[in-house]
Design a protein around this nucleic acid. Structure first.
Lengths: 132, 132
DNA sequence: CGGCATCCGAACCGATACTG
DNA sequence: CAGTATCGGTTCGGATGCCG
């Protein structure tokens, strides 16, 4: 069936819709939000506390996009006070592992990055405009 | 040796420097740039053509950050016309695989995402302000 | 060829106030 | 509790022009 437009699935192509998906995953809070849901459903407030430094606005926005794209489900319990649960969908669970690898890499290699950064600055000082 | 400040390596903590690393990887063009260098060194112009839609400014900026953080090396050949090669460092090669997984997921799951998006819009139309 | 500097509109994001 | 709405500052990012 698949009415295939002549745009192959290649993130390097300008007009490929996968670009949008990549951008979603590349969002500042996406990897953290997905990771926080790996162990089961969480309430909005729990996520807010877990993702230190996230503003309520950005968390809401991030979760909305993830819900819209089918990675996260949102369940409202009509109780007082209001309760809203977020959970990974099957699609969301399938991206959890790749994103987890990214988070892990960040934690494991921060040392290397910091050393590289220090080295870079050291050069910039010692050598103002070498070949650039 | 490791002068350990009391900030553990946890991307969920507000003041953990890993946040900066995660942000680097979460940049719009980072995953594409790293991927384009997987098969060996590439010239600036090659990368520009490969990453369709990237502006020269953003490509330069992305490559600079990657160089600064030790994921990419930059080699200038003092010839006319000028030639500059970019290549992955060992650190850069170690992140190539995780980022590749992210790109692959984007390409493989664009269908699911598009269907979810259509479904979401369909609901929004049919049901203006249900529980939000 | 591979940049850098500048301008400028667009998008992002935090802070605050208000709602069911 | 879990949002929405709005305002304003910051950053993003494209377009253009110039340089070695």
């Amino acid at each position: 069936m698949e009415t295939s437009v002549d745009v192959r699935k290649d993130v390097y192509l300008r007009n490929c819709p996968c670009r949008g998906v990549l951008d979603l995953l590349a969002n500042k809070w996406t990897a953290l939000a997905i990771g926080a849901l790996e162990d089961g459903p969480r309430r909005f407030g729990e996520l807010r506390r877990k993702l230190e430094g996230v503003s309520q606005k950005m968390l809401t926005q991030t979760l909305r996009e993830l819900e819209r794209d089918g990675l996260v489900s949102r369940t409202v319990y009509p109780v007082v006070p209001l309760r809203v649960d977020y959970a990974l969908t099957e699609l969301g669970r399938s991206v959890a592992e790749p994103l987890s690898a990214i988070r892990r890499w960040s934690e494991e290699n921060i040392g290397h990055v910091q050393r590289a950064r220090a080295e870079y600055e050291r050069r910039a000082e010692a050598d103002p405009v070498p070949a650039r």
